[in-house]
């Protein structure tokens, strides 16, 4: 979670420049909204509540900054991923494959599936622009690192509690796979390109 917050803070810094996909940020705001409805149904712990509120605040502030406060620096020509291509399958799958057919559970499942693909508009955008600003690459790196640590967490919990959440694990693996392509570019290209400060060239 700390890494996720770092990624969010990096993202807020990033808003002063363009290169961020507003659509991905809208999807993340939707992910946290549909997942954290249990804030109103059952209190778990102060930490749990505080972290959820931080995630919700950051994601909505981010969307506001992109589309209103810094709308001039928003590169909408390249942020053209069709969200319906993500929302329709994710909605359908959350009705088909879930743990129980109740509103809260379906919304939770929807948010888990949506989180897996929420970064795609961002990856699509940097492939269109052909390069990613250095801070964008750091943002994606921390987000990817947070995902990778979840894999380690699931392995750890499986060996200690002999439990795993199938829907969360499968969708988390899918999400991490999307980052692997980026990680490869980050490691191979990031080093040599770092000098000229123009970020990493992303082949289409």
């Amino acid at each position: 979670n700390a890494l996720h917050v770092i990624a969010l803070l990096l993202l807020l810094l990033l808003l002063l420049s363009c290169g961020i996909s507003g659509k991905s940020q809208v999807l993340f705001a939707l992910v946290f909204t549909t997942r954290y409805l249990d804030l109103f149904t059952n209190f778990i712990s102060l930490y749990n509540t505080v972290m959820k509120v931080i995630f919700l605040l950051c994601s909505y502030v981010t969307v506001y900054m992109i589309y209103w406060r810094f709308w001039k620096s928003f590169d909408s020509e390249n942020d053209t991923f069709r969200l319906e291509f993500l929302l329709v399958p994710v909605t359908g799958l959350s009705f088909l494959e879930n743990y129980s057919f109740t509103p809260l559970e379906i919304l939770w499942t929807f948010s888990i599936y949506l989180e897996s693909v929420a970064i795609l508009p961002q990856l699509f955008m940097i492939s269109r622009t052909g390069e990613a600003e250095t801070i964008t690459t750091h943002y994606l790196f921390f987000l990817g690192l947070y995902r990778a640590l979840y894999l380690a967490n699931w392995i750890w919990r499986y060996h200690t509690e002999n439990f795993y959440d199938q829907i969360a694990v499968v969708s988390g693996v899918v999400q991490t796979i999307f980052y692997c392509d980026f990680f490869y570019l980050y490691v191979t290209k990031g080093r040599c390109q770092e000098g000229d400060g123009h970020g990493i060239p992303i082949p289409a």
Binding site: N1, D38, S45, N48, W108, A168
Partner: peptide, 10 residues
């Protein structure tokens, strides 16, 4: 699943 802290992703 939703609201289950022990077995849920944040």
């Amino acid at each position: 699943s939703a609201g289950d802290p022990d077995h849920d992703e944040l």
